[in-house]
C-alpha cells in the first residue's frame, strides 16, 4: 500500500488510474443494485430470458470448441515455424479485433446467407445460418477466436523447443512430443485463452443481431426489451446477465489459477 503513495508522481497516478476503475465499477454496481432480488428472481423465471441465456452460453461454448480444435494447431505452427506469408496469417488472426462487429455480421451474411455457395452447401446437411443457432455460433467464432489463438501461441512460444527435441530423442513421435510436452506446458495460456474467448462470445451483439436476430441471445433480448418497453423493463435482464457473466468469469479464473499452481 505504501508503495502506491511513495511520492507525488505515484499519488497522482493513483488518482488518474482510479478514475478508470471507478468508471467501470460504478455503472456495473448501479445496475446490479438497482433491481430487487425479488424482481431478479421473477426475471429468471421468465422462460424467454432463461432460454436466451442458455442459448448464449451454449453457442459460445460451441464456438470455443471449434476454435480450440482448429486454433490450437494453428497457434502451434505460428509459434514454431517460419514460413512465407506468416505476417499475413498473423494479421488475419487479429483482424476480427479491429473491424466493427456489425460489419462482420454483413460479411458473414454475404458468405453464409441462404443464396450463397456455402449457405447452400451447408443447407444440404440441414444447417442454416441466417436466423438460426449455427449463425450465432459463426458470429461468435469470428469475433472472438483471436483471443484463443493468440493466447495459445504465446503459450507455445514460452515452451523451449529443445524440450520437444529431448522428447524426440527419448522415443517420442512428433504427436507424442506435442501431447506429452508442448501441450501440457502451454495449457495455462491456452486455458486463459479459452476463458477469454468464451466470455467474449457471450457478450457479442453486433454481428449476431445482423446474422441471427432470432433465436435471441441474451444481449439481443436485452436490446429488444429496451427498444420495445424501455429502461425499467430491460434493467433486470441486464442485471442478471452481468451477474451471471461475472460469476462464471471469476469462477473459471479461480479454478484455472488453482489448477496450474498445483500443476507446477
Amino acid at each position: 500500500m505504501r508503495a502506491l503513495f511513495a511520492n507525488k508522481m505515484r499519488a497522482s497516478f493513483v488518482v488518474l488510474g482510479s478514475l478508470l476503475i471507478l468508471f467501470i465499477a460504478w455503472p456495473l454496481l448501479r445496475t446490479v443494485t438497482a433491481s430487487s432480488p425479488v424482481l431478479l428472481w421473477q426475471t429468471l423465471l421468465d422462460e424467454e430470458v432463461r432460454d436466451s441465456i442458455g442459448l448464449t452460453f451454449t453457442a459460445s461454448l460451441v464456438a470455443t470448441v471449434i476454435a480450440f480444435v482448429c486454433g490450437v494447431p494453428l497457434a502451434y505452427l505460428l509459434a514454431r515455424a517460419d514460413f512465407p506469408g506468416k505476417w499475413l496469417v498473423e494479421g488475419i488472426i487479429d483482424v476480427p479485433i479491429v473491424v466493427p462487429h456489425s460489419a462482420v455480421g454483413i460479411a458473414l451474411l454475404m458468405t453464409l446467407g441462404r443464396r450463397t455457395l456455402l449457405g447452400q452447401a451447408f443447407g444440404l446437411f440441414g444447417i442454416k445460418f441466417v436466423s438460426a443457432a449455427p449463425g450465432i455460433v459463426a458470429a461468435m467464432l469470428f469475433v472472438s477466436l483471436s483471443f484463443l489463438v493468440n493466447a495459445a501461441r504465446e503459450g507455445f512460444e514460452a515452451v523451449d523447443p529443445r524440450l520437444e527435441r529431448v522428447a524426440r530423442t527419448l522415443g517420442a513421435s512428433p504427436w507424442q512430443s506435442f501431447w506429452r510436452v508442448s501441450f501440457p506446458l502451454a495449457w495455462r495460456s491456452i486455458l486463459s485463452g479459452i476463458i477469454l474467448m468464451w466470455a467474449r462470445g457471450l457478450s457479442e451483439f453486433g454481428a449476431i443481431v445482423i446474422l441471427a436476430y432470432h433465436p435471441m441471445v441474451a444481449p439481443v433480448l436485452l436490446y429488444e426489451r429496451f427498444e420495445s418497453f424501455g429502461l425499467n423493463y430491460s434493467r433486470p435482464v441486464a442485471t442478471l446477465m452481468i451477474l451471471i457473466c461475472l460469476a462464471t468469469f471469476v469462477a473459471l479464473r479461480l479454478t484455472a489459477g488453482r489448477k496450474t499452481e498445483s500443476g507446477e
Binding site: R165, V166, R168, T169, L170, G171, A172, S173
Partner: peptide, 8 residues
Amino acid sequence: PEQRGIGF
C-alpha cells in the same frame, strides 16, 4: 530422432 536410439 525417435528411431535412432541416441540419448541427448
